[in-house]
């Protein structure tokens, strides 16, 4: 392997390492998504269990 080729390979490896590090530092993950713990259960919502706004309240969504 000649010296030029070896230099190429070292440079390429260095660049790849640098890009990988940049990728890690910048971070591409979405800081908003993630699961919740299991255990949401809905039994026991009897007829008197109300969640809606009261009649006459203003809603804005």
């Amino acid at each position: 392997m000649n010296i030029m080729l070896r230099r190429w390979m070292v440079s390429a490896l260095g660049l790849l390492l640098f890009m990988g590090l940049c990728g890690c530092l910048v971070g591409r993950g979405y800081g908003g998504g993630g699961y919740e713990r299991s255990g949401h259960e809905y039994g026991g919502w009897g007829s008197g269990y109300h969640v809606a706004p009261a009649r006459g309240m203003r809603l804005g969504r």
Binding site: G44, A52, P53, A54
Partner: peptide, 14 residues
């Protein structure tokens, strides 16, 4: 701002 935004409810049952 006089708008209802959400309700807070006790977890039902057990």
């Amino acid at each position: 701002e006089d708008y209802a935004r959400a309700s807070v409810n006790p977890l039902p049952g057990d």
